[in-house]
Every structure is written in structure tokens, then in C-alpha cells.
Design a binder for these strands. Sequence first.
DNA 1: CCTCGACTTATGTCTAGACATAATGATGCC
DNA 2: GGCATCATTATGTCTAGACATAAGTCGAGG
Lengths: 234, 234
Amino acid sequence: MDMVIHRRIESDIERRILSGEWRPGHRLPTESELMAEYGCARMTASKAMSGLAARGLVTRRRRAGTIVAHPPLHSAALVAIPDIQTEVEGRGHAYEHRLLARRVRPAEDVEAWLAGAGRVIQLETVHLADGAPFAHERRVISLDAAPEAEAADFAAQPAGSWLLAHTPWTEAEHRISAVGADVVMARHLLLPPGAACLRLERRTWRDGQGVTWAFQTFPGDAYDLVARFQPTKA
Amino acid sequence: MDMVIHRRIESDIERRILSGEWRPGHRLPTESELMAEYGCARMTASKAMSGLAARGLVTRRRRAGTIVAHPPLHSAALVAIPDIQTEVEGRGHAYEHRLLARRVRPAEDVEAWLAGAGRVIQLETVHLADGAPFAHERRVISLDAAPEAEAADFAAQPAGSWLLAHTPWTEAEHRISAVGADVVMARHLLLPPGAACLRLERRTWRDGQGVTWAFQTFPGDAYDLVARFQPTKA
DNA sequence: CCTCGACTTATGTCTAGACATAATGATGCC
DNA sequence: GGCATCATTATGTCTAGACATAAGTCGAGG
């Protein structure tokens, strides 16, 4: 192989774990053994093993050695959370959006995490792909975290991209669920009331301070989220 | 700080990126500069920077240096894909399941990725939490990939955990969508037909060979998936 | 002005040492 | 047997060098 040594060690071990030759719990060679086997320095073996540990394939403990990790029961998958405009344009459709409502008001109790007792700006938007409704969005932005939002023209630029440019978030929580469309959403999405929709709730923070809270609702037959997970391959 | 040097360098830089002091595109100090600043060896500085690069905070190129990475528009989030039994028991409910149907048959055309022209075993199950329906599952297992499945007693052990123990997967694709309950599912889940449900489609492979294809359907008001993403904090 | 080298520089990889730290296993005492 | 103690060992971190490699920079020649 023309691979660099630590990558070769990594992929050799990875292959053995993948093939089932080394099952979860199996103890792998110590760094000193790898060092002898590959004729390299301990640091090089260490780098390979650290890489495997960082990817979750193995578990390392001082003195106890390195063992093949037990696969997590709750497997975690990487899901791509889309920016609606990018998503629509990526599918080759023309993107448009319409601001349905905009209101500045004091924060309510359930929004305490967002803005405390401060003021918020509340928006309602529909996103269109080739003129057809693609998603409905209700969003609240904290004016404490983003005071410039009060003067922003959200009819010209959707709040999502405006926020990305003005107050990048440092932490986010997404909640994915299914809901039946309520009467208002159904009208804007041109669906029968009660139709199954995918709802993406997103809360974001910037250094601990709440920035925005958004509910995006997609017609169930128009959209799905794909998550891929390769627990072993790089 | 009592932190180890390379972690301190990492978190110092991380803080500056987080705070917005160093915006995307900003060029960070070279390893030699960090080495002088922290009085450490170049390898130590390198380790810190590699760690940041592995987490996607910075981009490194030979000779060009290290710059703050541009945040991805399609942000990826880690979503926990649950094992139903674990999920139910984790909520403090009693888990039960009922096998509704079991059939061995040749693979259909849409299942070519799974079993080619081989045989498959098809299962239909309901999962219960404290006696109440929690999820409906339709699953197909390739008998090429898991021949022992033909003899397994899926009434005693749900297929999900049986597979986890017998043929661990190496690759998986999850698709999350919203669907209205069809008549059969609605009856088993005790829902009105058409009620919004969260559907989790999961396909798994073992070293390129298809293993199983499952559709799990959850009542929309009973379940949601939570994804957290902290692009910057460790 | 443009292009092709040669030079420089920042990262990538590697080595052969060193000391630190945590967990295991053995030992000896009660 | 049960328990405290100590030696051993595998990993964790670090250093001060080395050579390799990719990619900007700059100059010479057309």
C-alpha cells in the first residue's frame, strides 16, 4: 500500500472489526505490539488507535487496553437539516417566499428560554417551489439576541438566511415529529385539514442566549429527511 | 487552567471562533506561532489544530494555512435512532410486542437491493408500551444475509434485537417522513384512519449485502425525534 | 503581459525518547 | 474471606528534532 502508516494500521484494524473477525469486546493489540508488527514508533500506533477511538469503533482505557466497542443500541445517525431555499433550488425549482404576518410583542411564558421578559418578533411565512407551497413556517426571534431584526425586511430576505448572516448560532436543537395540518396551515399549503405533515421544530442559541424558535411544516408527501450512518467505514 | 496543553489551545481558538472574533475565512496562527505563544512543541500545536479540523471548525491546507471554516448551509445534526424496546423501557413503561404475521416468500422487484432473487422473510409486528400500541412495524429480512432467521422465533424476541445480536449491520440508511395511517395500521394503533404518523424507514447492509428493510410507524402525538447540534462546543 | 520554473513556507507524517496517570493484579495483613 | 497496599502496565501527553508534500510567491525569459 502507498498509504501512510497510521492510516494503514487504522484500516487494517477497521477491516478486521468490520468482517466480524474481532467482535465487540475483543481486546486489540497494545501499542507496543503494533509498534513491533508495523516497525513504527509508538506515537504512530497511538495516532491510529486514537483515530479509531474518535470514530467510536473502539474504546480505550488506561492500563485496561483497547477493545472493540459495543455497538450503541440507540444508534445515532447524521441527518441533514436543510435550509429551505437551498433545498428547493438544489432540486432545480425556483424558490420564492411570502411573508404572511409580522408582529412585535412581549415574550410569552413558554418563550422564557428565548427572550426572558424581553420583546420578540413573530413571523409567519410560506416557502414556495415553482410557485407551489413547499413549507409553512412560524418563527419567533428574540430582539435581545438580534436587535437589528426589528429593522430587517423579511419580505425581501427570509428570516432563516437573514439570521444565518447576522447572528450565527452556536447551539441548536431540532425536534422532528408528525402533525396533522391545522386549518391555517392547510389553507396555505393547499392541503385538506388534518393531512399528515412533517414538522421540524428548531431552537437555536448563541453562547447560551436564545436566538430563535421556528416551526417548519412540510406536506408529508412532498418531503422527507434522510439520515445515513456508516458506523465503521470512514 | 489545569487542562492539558493541546486541549487548552483548542478551546482558546474555539472560543474566539464562537465569539465571532474570528469569522469564517479568518486565517489562524500557524503552528510555529502557536508554538511560540504557548511554549510547546510543534506537534502539540498540530494536535490541537487537527482536532479542530476533525470537528469541522477549521479548514487546513498545506502551505495555505488554517482558516476558520465556513458554516455549512445544510447543517447536519445527530439524531438518535431508537431501538423501540429500549425507548419504551427508558420511559418507564412495560414493553411488549405482538407478531401479527410471518411469511417466507421470494424477493420482489423493489427488494432487489436486499436479496437479489433470493428468499425473504416478511414480518408484521406491533410494539406496545404498558399495553397501549406504541408503534407498528413491517419488516423484510433477507434469508441470504441471515439464513438463521428462518428458524428464529420472532414471537419471543422482536426482529430488531434478534438482528442486532445475530448480524450486526455496517451501514444504514434512515428515512424520516410523515404519513397518514392506512386502514391496517390505524386499526392496530387504535387511531382514526389518516391520522398523522411519523414513519421511520430503515435499510441496513452488512459489507454491501442488504440485511433488512423496516418501516416503523409511530402515532404523531406519541413520539418525536430530537436532534442536537453544537457545531462548536466539544 | 503571460507562462514556466525555482524558492519558500505551512502543514503532514514520523521517530525515539520522556514522564504522567489510571486501572489491574498480586501481595500481605487482619 | 475481606481489605488495604503496592507494583505493573497500557494509555495519555509531551518534546525536539527530521524529512515529505502541496501550494503560494516571485523572478526570468519569452
